[in-house]
Design a protein around this nucleic acid. Structure first.
Lengths: 246, 246
DNA sequence: GCGCGACATTGACCAGGATCAAAAAGGTGC
DNA sequence: GCACCTTTTTGATCCTGGTCAATGTCGCGC
């Protein structure tokens, strides 16, 4: 089971699609929306939420990719989450966003106004249970990522990220890895660097290194072919196949 | 509100205290326990759970300190959580432990047999709600730690860790920081290194450096005095006072 | 007190990744 | 096609933190 499936009663007029230039631009419009559930789209590169923003809604990603990240005053930034379709944004019970959320590609969110959503949660316990399960999964992957950030070499970091993207991609398409896995990197070199705690130059160098040894092949800048998945796995530093998707 | 407060009906014979040499040593004894809730103690240094272990119980820490960590085959290890009194161990709905749990000091756990606990959760929704809240908090702190691991210098990492320990300590004692905050480091240099993605030598060097500039003072190896909290905060790289406890 | 072992500090040297800089490769609009 | 801009690659050099090794400190049992 992927994502959070919720039936909202008075949802006849959904989906309402409206486009926002910036998450802070139209609080009034948002405030006057009477329905609980609505859709919202963002263009690639647009901010969805800034850390500290008042959160009017919780949402789940319908299409596109967004990132969750944290920035220091001097510009150093660390990505702390990658949001793919079916991932959840926001926290019932919290007023303010703890991190920045940015659309990497064009993104459609399915939003729920926060207050009504919280009420709904108290009435239908399975929503809370499902949300707990999803949050625990996120916590586990955050902790796995801490190992990558704290202990892996640049080479291992890159291999780990490529592997994660490969797996997520093939699980999204429900296509099991065949002889030659092939997929697109959804992130720029800089975004990969922010995910891995590296500089973009190092990311580029290590991708080139993996290419030179034949572990991956590239078509253009973004399209990746993995001829031998085991070879890639052995570059990650984890020797066994930890979290292979079913 | 700290921790998870649960009333168990037939708890007249609690607490049952029994001591385990190893979490894997006495499945039979555990299996035959009829009550839902029981206490269990571990000595400093003992493993509580190995990654992959079958989890018979969920628990919350009553006294002592435990760590959650992840190891690579070659010995590199990364701590991914620090469990203090009132923190929760385990995951309803999961058979196996995802990480290693080790007692750093003597630890007492309040355990709940997993199956009955899960049933209890479906019946009393506030337990699930509270657990969701705690899990979201843990997720936030894991993500904040990702910034430390990925982007901070060794010096900033040490300052961040000392600050976190200082705050947790003063919040546990409900004693607000006075002119000279004073507390013990509960971790060895090596454990700090595993938390921060550093080597123990670097930890030692950076603690010495903070001592030489007067940011902290040491009495013995473990006892720390922070004469000026702001000076310490400015060493963390976060310029503003992000998550100061109430 | 003495000796032992665990933990911590300090030093010398090295290397992986950062930094600074320049060139190359794609896209996109005209 | 061509010019322009963004993204990426590659190169040269530097520096933080890792590695290897020695020394110091503390606590504890005898």
């Amino acid at each position: 089971m992927n994502g959070l499936h919720i039936d909202v009663k008075d949802c006849s007029q959904c989906p309402i699609r409206h486009r926002a230039v910036c998450s802070r631009c139209e609080p009034d419009e948002l405030e006057t929306l009477e329905n609980i559930k609505y859709y919202r789209t963002y263009e690639a590169g647009q901010p969805i939420l800034w850390s500290g923003d008042h959160m009017e809604f919780v949402a789940s990603v319908v299409t596109g990719i967004a990132t969750l990240s944290q920035a220091m005053e001097d510009g150093r930034t660390q990505m702390v989450g990658l949001l793919l379709p079916s991932d959840f944004i926001g926290r019932p019970g919290r007023e303010r966003a703890p991190f920045d959320v940015v659309a990497v590609s064009d993104v459609t969110l399915c939003c729920f106004r926060r207050r009504p959503f919280e009420e709904m949660m108290t009435q239908t316990p399975h929503i809370g249970q499902r949300l707990l399960e999803m949050t625990l999964d996120e916590l586990d992957s955050a902790r796995e990522w801490m190992l990558v950030l704290g202990r892996k070499t640049a080479r291992e970091k890159i291999a780990s990220l490529v592997l994660i993207i490969a797996r997520r991609d093939s699980s999204l398409r429900r296509k099991l890895p065949a002889d030659g896995m092939t997929f697109d990197l959804p992130l720029t070199r800089e975004a990969m660097a922010d995910y891995l705690g590296l500089t973009l130059e190092t990311v580029s160098r290590q991708i080139s290194a993996l290419r030179k040894t034949g572990t991956i092949r590239l078509e253009g800048k973004r399209h990746v072919i993995v001829p031998d998945l085991d070879a890639l796995i052995s570059e990650t530093g984890d020797d066994y196949d930890g979290g292979m998707i079913a």
